[in-house]
Nucleic acid binder design. Structure first.
Lengths: 255, 255
DNA sequence: ATAATCTATGACGTAACGTTATAGTCAAGC
DNA sequence: GCTTGACTATAACGTTACGTCATAGATTAT
């Protein structure tokens, strides 16, 4: 039995245009075509469509879905596991956003507008999470499935909103201190002291930050534009400066 | 003090192009322009940018953000409250997706591929949630802030994954029964019996489904394309048929 | 047979920028 | 005072996953 476009569209809950599109990009070509040029789909096609929609629902793009479905040897488990991480982060971000919306609503009710300070905080936090989500995979590759990484994830998962607030506040404080001393140069004692605090802060709240990791982190701040952007929000050029200071810090301890 | 594009971009963590874009669409115009045509931003502009990014982070589009920021009298609370609902739904959907990813991973581990039946279920559920999210507002308008609606929301909020599975399974069963009897016509006793069960199912699991609401629900199935599409997935034409049957059911009880 | 419905193929529109391409501007070092 | 490098400007096409006409032929129902 063959189905025509609209039948398939209705069954799957997608538009006819969508099926045209999937045909065009070679994602789902109908098994056959009628003499008049009508697309004729079979049950097999329907199944593939379900799989496409499934992966789409999971947030994969159409090209990615195609890659997954067209490569029988593709490591679905790997792909799904990686994607799972993303979804978890996304969810956590949503929760934070909801909380912040709630606060905003509350503050409006109380006639007090949320101030920019608070807005900045909210934004910074979600930005950082975004980076984490996007670069979870790369980070994993860089640091491997090390204990450090796992430790970080486990700790982070337990943090409450207040914890985050505290941690971010402290982070900003340290950043600010370093930014204020930028003119003194990266090897200045005050800067080095702040850098030491920064490493301690990471160890306290995330994972055992070894010198090796700390050095790599400094590199990341400059190599990864998104980290750079985030750090340079405190003061332009801070990221680059921070890497220098962190390298000097590591050199001093390792020599 | 004035800032140039890149300074602002670095501070806010956005691209220069983004600022150009915001200028173009009139969302954020720099306070002044240098003789050479350079955009010069002030602190005020920075604040507005933060607000823009804040609302963007909350999922608003740029036009919406503009509307909110440009209308001092705009009901921010209303907008935020409406948006909150959406976020909650989004979060719930994410949770379901994560659960389904987990199951898929598990089934791959066990060497058993998830079957289409299961995939369909997952997809159906998230589809329905999508509709709920999108039409929460309209639904509220239609049924008002009635007790029925509140009851529904309260009940739904407590459902676990297993509850949903049970409810959806039963829903599909009833739909299927009606679909199988379509040829007999909407007033057929078997169909009417199934329709009665459908109403009972809604009452049991969501809210006290009065005849008035039930009739309106039937209309919704046809008037709202997304409901139609979803229902016609069981069998094309089912939505229209269902409305007929539901109307007949209501007529019989009300006369 | 005629109307209503469905099908096809273009081809432009959307949102929020990314990405060249081309050209003018500014601060610093020689 | 001139070159160099970093920055700025506008213009315009690319991206994603379709939506939305427009035009025209095919199928189905009455």
């Amino acid at each position: 039995m063959h189905y025509k476009v609209k039948e398939v569209a209705d069954m799957a809950g997608v538009s006819v245009r969508t099926l045209h599109h999937y045909d065009q990009i070679g994602l789902l070509k109908p098994e056959s075509v009628s003499p008049a040029g009508y697309r004729l789909y079979t049950e097999k096609d329907l199944e593939r469509l379900q799989q496409i929609l499934f992966f789409k629902e999971l947030g994969f793009g159409l090209q990615e879905a195609k890659n997954i479905l067209d490569n029988p040897g593709f490591d679905r488990k790997q792909a799904l596991t990686a994607h799972r991480e993303l979804l978890i982060k996304k969810k956590a971000r949503l929760e934070k956003i909801i909380a912040s919306v709630d606060e905003t609503i509350k503050s409006i009710k109380g006639g007090i507008q949320m101030n920019n300070q608070e807005m900045f905080k909210v934004f910074d936090m979600s930005e950082i999470e975004k980076h984490q989500a996007k670069y979870a995979a790369e980070t994993r590759q860089k640091y491997g499935d090390t204990d450090a990484y796992k430790e970080s994830m486990q700790k982070a998962a337990k943090y409450t909103k207040d914890d985050w607030s505290r941690i971010m506040s402290k982070s900003n404080e340290i950043y600010q201190r370093i930014a204020d001393s930028m003119e003194k140069g990266p090897s200045d004692p005050e800067v080095q002291e702040a850098v030491a605090q920064w490493r301690q802060h990471i160890t306290d709240n995330f994972y055992n930050c070894t010198l090796e990791i700390f050095r790599g982190l400094g590199d990341l701040y400059v190599d990864d534009d998104r980290f750079t952007a985030n750090i340079d929000k405190v003061k332009p050029g801070l990221a680059k400066f921070l890497r220098e200071a962190m390298h000097i810090y590591c050199d001093n301890l390792q020599k």
